[in-house]
Design a protein around this nucleic acid. Structure first.
Lengths: 346, 346
DNA sequence: AGCGCTTACGAAAGCGCTTTCGTAGCCTAT
DNA sequence: ATAGGCTACGAAAGCGCTTTCGTAAGCGCT
């Protein structure tokens, strides 16, 4: 293996290959205007010497920035760390670097991070996580991204964002519908929803799916209590407490993600409410611990790692005339946290 | 492909402030040789215009690279995503960018990622996750890092690595001892260990702690069956299966991290072994789901997010003459997965 | 007044690369 | 033979910044 020398520059490679700097650059970039023979020689020398281009010089000189900026709500949320994992895998295959920024589920901060990434001249921007129901912010973000794309940058998002860019769309509505149908089939008629922050499109879409399932079964949506809280484990606890207090007749709780479902289970356990005998609980996402909760969680599986891969793959393709969309598919995973609605009255 | 757009440059700021490029640069970098008055004016103008320096130009010109390379085993492992979260927080405060690379728990690959980060000219390298018991790899890594530091780079690691750099040391041995003592105090005498890959220093250290606790109680270490497997949930399942088969008399299983503990609980549940009545289980790390497993997991808490913060903080300080070391502390968290040893044992 | 010393600033030299532009050298068409 | 068009390559101009070096101005000292 070649020793990656201390300060090997392209001139060194060029000199060794007996060509000019310009030719060496062209040869390594695989550009036109170099004979096959010379190009081969340059590549050969470059490999022997273990040359790696200085990305700062390369980018400054107007070449491609080979780094991918990834914005997530919070990296220690399993949903996002699995997505990140997929992105990192593809990036490694492509020789790209991944920079991760936190938005903390705050539209304002997300915009700030976005601007920061653009200012840092990354080549590709990936936004994971839900869109926001925030006109102003979305408009500003859209403007930034448009300018970024005009300058040659590539963008892809995961989730429904009104940003006019390529998108990987999690099967949120269909998944919500699958969950609703599952519970209805089990005989549940008193269903409460532990929903995340109202402003998130993910929350809205999943909720719409649940509502659609109820409507299909001729149930009134007024009978569907929706409790909004943080889209986290603690938010789930809070929501569950409120559901127990305000809607004690519920026989099932739909948490709109697994983090919340975890909190719901925790709260129910604290109140000695048996799951699923007394109350069924479902989540959404199928993060890896869902199978290990007590009881194991019925949920909708989204292919998070795959979603990360898809998003970067989209961004790596040349831009299309219209934004592309890729759906993810979903799978209902029935485990132990759901069961038939209890007979008679609780 | 992507080209930097029509962006604000430092000359623009300088012009607007009525000073030269050099002075503007010095003012913004907070260097000597600029009067307070002029410096203030430059900063003021810079802020007004929303100027953000081009990091590529800055780094190329010889300034420090403002990106942090973070090597983790796997980002979707909660242990690492919590560490990453801490690193990202501090980085955001300092205006740094974080690049994440996967090592996949493979020494060879870790070395490759390390070289890649160095070649990419990051300014700071953070290696999270266990060291390896691999002389050759450690020697090569140490050489690379030494050269990197000689060139002005900064390095810090989390965990015990024989790399001669600043380190954040998780309280692995003391934590192992705490766990061992806890079980011994509960009357357990037949304890089995579900350990991760033998080559990891983390595994060795935690195990040593457990062994020390046993020794303090006058127990022979021969009586401590150690089953090695992957340092993951699935590894935990495998290890538990083997323990049930080969050491059925065990009344407690120590998993050397929470991921394995999760697998152990899962396997025990599948075999209808009651926890903690028949077998107690403990983990290590206290990842956020530990409290939500069934039963909730007794474990040793390590301040992962804090560890990430500490590592970057160390790297941000100027290099000391000798590598610094920071211990993390630990807390035994007793939950429902441990209880008194069943009566009537040999 | 003359000398040195410090201070505050500007001019200009790179950092390592990509890209434009210019030019030999060769090939084909007249 | 000459003109015109390619092709393969080199020289050199930046990209936006930091830093070195030079200098004018201000200071205290003899």
């Amino acid at each position: 293996m070649p020793r990656p020398g201390p300060r090997l520059r392209l001139v060194d490679v060029a000199e060794r290959a007996g060509v000019s700097l310009a030719t060496a650059s062209r040869a390594l970039a695989g550009r036109e205007g170099v004979s096959e023979e010379v190009a081969d020689r340059v590549r050969q020398v470059s490999r022997e010497l273990g040359y790696v281009a200085n990305p700062y010089a390369r980018t400054l000189a107007g070449g491609a920035s080979s780094t991918v900026g990834l914005i997530v709500h919070q990296i220690d949320d399993p949903y996002f760390s699995e997505i990140a994992s997929g992105v990192i895998e593809v990036a490694a295959e492509e020789g790209l670097l991944v920079q991760i920024a936190h938005s903390g589920r705050d539209p304002e901060n997300e915009l700030r991070q976005l601007r920061h990434l653009i200012a840092q001249r990354v080549g590709i921007i990936l936004i994971a996580g839900s869109g926001y129901d925030d006109q102003r912010m979305e408009a500003e973000a859209r403007a930034e991204l448009a300018a970024f794309q005009r300058a040659g940058g590539r963008v892809a998002v995961i989730g429904r964002h009104a940003l006019g860019v390529d998108a990987v769309l999690p099967d949120n509505e269909a998944g919500g519908r699958a969950i609703g149908t599952h519970l209805l089939d089990l005989g549940h008629r008193r269903i409460a929803v532990a929903a995340g922050t109202p402003g998130l499109t993910t929350v809205a879409d999943r909720l719409a799916g649940v509502a659609a399932a109820l409507a299909e079964h001729g149930l009134s949506l007024d009978a569907l209590p929706v409790v909004h809280s943080d889209f986290t484990r603690d938010g789930g606890r809070v929501a569950a407490e409120r559901i127990l207090r305000e809607h004690p007749e519920s026989t099932a709780v739909i948490a709109l993600n697994d983090a919340m479902a975890t909190g719901v289970l925790s709260a129910l356990r604290a109140h000695r409410v048996r799951v699923p005998d007394r109350v069924s609980v479902v989540g959404f996402d199928d993060v890896s611990v869902a199978a290990d909760l007590a009881p194991s969680l019925t949920t909708v599986r989204l292919p998070m790692t795959q979603m990360g891969r898809m998003a970067l793959a989209l961004a790596l393709q040349p831009r299309a005339t219209r934004p592309r969309r890729r759906s993810t598919g979903h799978t209902l995973i029935v485990r132990d946290s759901t069961g038939p609605a209890p007979a008679g009255r609780p």
